[in-house]
């Protein structure tokens, strides 16, 4: 199923939640989904019999300062052999959106990673802790304005 069809399918079900895929000159296009409805959209995409996006390939955060953080979901259906990219734009000041770890269990760690490196809060996540960095680390390194610390627990780093 092509992305236009998927969009049409989603637009019928969630009229306000999904925007039409923008034209891109190079690379892949995507569907923009509102933060509030991402969980429902994902559940719909996974369970609907002609969509069956059973696999979440990747969940990434992207930082677009100064306003937005983006969560990108790459979905794939191993049965129907089609894929789609969803994007959720959240405000940079207070980035939060519902978790999809109840839809795909694999999202659990991916969301923790996004929280760790971008500071995006996933509401309803069963244990949103830092995963790669130490629990007492300050800041979120993959944000574009992240300043590298020169000291951590007495370990000094000379740049």
């Amino acid at each position: 199923m092509e992305i236009q069809e998927i969009h049409a399918r989603l637009a019928r079900e969630f009229p306000d939640a999904v925007e039409a895929p923008p034209e891109v000159t190079s690379g892949e296009t995507f569907l923009k989904v509102t933060a509030a409805s991402i969980q429902d959209v994902c559940r719909f995409l996974k369970t609907e019999s002609d969509l069956e996006f059973d696999s979440l390939m990747s969940l990434s955060g992207v930082d677009y300062p100064p306003e937005e953080l983006v969560v990108v979901y790459h979905l794939c259906s191993t049965l129907r052999r089609h894929r789609v990219v969803l994007k959720v734009f959240v405000p940079r000041e207070d980035p939060k959106l519902p978790t999809v770890s109840s839809v795909w269990p694999t999202a659990n760690w991916h969301e923790r990673e996004a929280y760790d490196l971008f500071g995006i809060r996933f509401l309803g996540h069963p244990g949103l802790r830092r995963i790669l960095l130490p629990h007492d680390w300050e800041g979120h390194p993959l944000r574009k304005d992240y300043v590298f610390p020169t000291e951590y627990r007495g370990i000094k780093c000379h740049d």
Partner: peptide, 23 residues
């Protein structure tokens, strides 16, 4: 590369190794 983004995956020895690149 021109402005855009791709997610490309390939079969590594451990499984699906994907790279998501934004230009």
């Amino acid at each position: 590369p021109p402005k855009g983004e791709v997610y490309v995956r390939s079969e590594s020895s451990k499984g699906e190794l994907g790279f998501y690149l934004i230009s």
